[in-house]
Amino acid sequence: MPRILVCYKWVLDEQDIKIVSLGLSLDVSRAKYKISDYDKNAIEEAVRIVEKNGGSVEAISFGTSLKQSFKDVLSRGVDKVYAIDSSIAENADAYVTANVLAAAIRKIGPYDLILCADGSSDVYNQQIGSRLSALLGLPGITSVSQINCEGDRISATRKLGDCTEVVHIKGQAVISVLPEINSVRIPTMKQVLAAAKKPSEEIKIDALGLSDAELLPKVTKVSVKGFVMNRKNIVFKDANQKDNVSKLVASLAKEGLLKERG
């Protein structure tokens, strides 16, 4: 029965980030935190594996304000959540994050299977699964669209652009899953209520035995600016849709976009 750990990231909801037109800086004051979208698929996959094979699902995150995330994570079928809550996470790059998670996993592990999403919805670095596997000395398989577990054997189907590839693993592994691996279920009221009684544990970053160098990012942000879209923004909104359509067709004709008649 597999013991599974899912890594998740607690991120700002990009839908609520606004670009300030002056200087193109980002206004995050109205943005709330959420579980990174694709991490929900990783959690869902872990829960589905356990529903089929037995075992347990734990989750871990490195970030800030992580307490707020516990209820959502635990109501999705996770048995226990670990949090490394530290301001170091604010400027952490994938190098630092992987160092922290690997050190924590050495402490609370071993796990038969460590699941990550293929990337986070904020920075989409797509590195954590691969880096963790290298740091922990475990097989690391990315871009996975299907997982089958049987005993201590795992088969993972990867989607690699122009082909799919099946990888068979014996023993422990770190697997990064694509969002298409499953459809995330919405927690039931019963699950939400049960979440409050489930355990959570804080791991202090100082207790991980990492050196200052291992916590110092290699990649630092010089600037972050909103992406500028320069478009004509001609929007037809008459009540009479026939008028709108003929105006649009006229505009598209001018752009040379109508189908040529042969």
């Binding site: 790059d93 994938a94 190098y95 992987a98 990337g119 989409y124 670095n125 797509q126 590195q127 699964g129 691969s130 880096r131 963790l132 596997s133 290298a134 740091l135 690391g140 990315t142 871009s143 990867r158 989607k159 690699l160 652009g161 990012p217 290699k218 990649v219």
Partner: peptide
Amino acid sequence: GTPRGKDIAAKVAAKLGAGLVT
């Protein structure tokens, strides 16, 4: 930046203790 290349780059970065921009 293919799926394989991103995986390999991240594993190499971890082994070198290096930063990687995706």
